[in-house]
Design a protein around this nucleic acid. Structure first.
Lengths: 118, 118
DNA sequence: CAGTATCCCCTCAGATACTG
DNA sequence: CAGTATCTGAGGGGATACTG
C-alpha cells in the first residue's frame, strides 16, 4: 500500500491499468460482473459497437491475465461461456472506486470548465 | 456507485481511466502526491525516461482535467511549479486501490502461469 | 455460433533539434 | 529553465469478408 512515501517507481498502478485498459474492457468486465456468465454473442449484443475481432482480442487478453474464464462446450453449434474468475471478481471494488471517482470528476469538470471561461 | 446492477453502459470507469491513462501519468501523479510541489525539471529528473515532449503533453492534459495545477513565475530564467489540485488529491485512494490490486495481481499471475504450463 | 484473416488508419509515444 | 517543432514508427482498434 505504501508506494508513495519514498519510491513511486515501484508502484503497481500500471499493472492494474494494464489489465483493465482496452477500449471495451471495462464494459466487458461490468457486464460479466452483473450477469455472471455470458456467451460470446450475448456479450456482443450487450456491446453492439465492438467488432468481433476486438471483442475476441480483449477476451483473450483478460483470459491470459487470469481475470476471465473461458469454457468451450464441444458441440455443434459451438457454445462458449465467459465468466470472471475468483481473482477477476476482486476487481469489483477497484472498478467501483474508479466509477465513483469518475462521477465526481465529471461534476468537477463542469464548474472547472466554467471558471476557466470566466 | 450502483453502475452494475442494470446498465453498465453508464458506468464512469472510463472517465477515470481517461484521466489517468498515459504512459507516464501514474508516475507523475505519484511523485506529485509524495512531494507536493515540483518544478518541471525536477519531474523530468525523477522520471528520466520520459521525453520533454511527452512530459509536457501529459502535464497539459492533467492540467486540462483540473487534476494538476501549473504556476508560472514570470522571471528569467523561468520557473514553473506543478502540484495537485484539491480535486487531484482525491485520486489518491483510487491509485492506492489500483496499486494494491496490482500487487495481488502479480502474485496471482505467478501461480497462474505455473498452472498453465503444467 | 464463435470465431479468423486481411487490410487500413490514426493516435500515442520516441528521437532529435531548436528557443524565449 | 521550460518548454516547441518536426518527423517517425509501433500497435491498438475499425471494416469487411470468410469459416469449422
Amino acid at each position: 500500500m505504501e508506494w508513495n512515501k519514498e519510491n513511486p517507481e515501484q508502484c503497481k498502478v500500471v499493472v492494474a491499468l494494464d489489465a483493465v485498459v482496452g477500449k471495451w474492457k471495462p464494459l466487458i468486465l461490468l457486464h460479466l460482473l452483473s450477469k455472471g456468465t455470458l456467451r460470446y454473442n450475448e456479450i456482443k449484443r450487450l456491446i453492439p459497437d465492438v467488432t468481433q475481432r476486438v471483442l475476441t482480442l480483449h477476451l483473450r487478453q483478460l483470459e491470459e491475465q487470469g481475470i476471465v474464464k473461458r469454457v468451450v462446450y464441444r458441440q455443434v453449434p459451438p457454445k462458449v461461456e465467459y465468466s470472471l474468475t475468483e481473482h477477476g471478481q476482486t476487481l469489483k471494488p477497484v472498478l467501483e472506486a474508479m466509477h465513483a471517482w469518475g462521477l465526481s470528476h465529471l461534476e468537477h469538470l463542469e464548474n472547472f470548465k466554467n471558471t476557466q471561461s470566466e
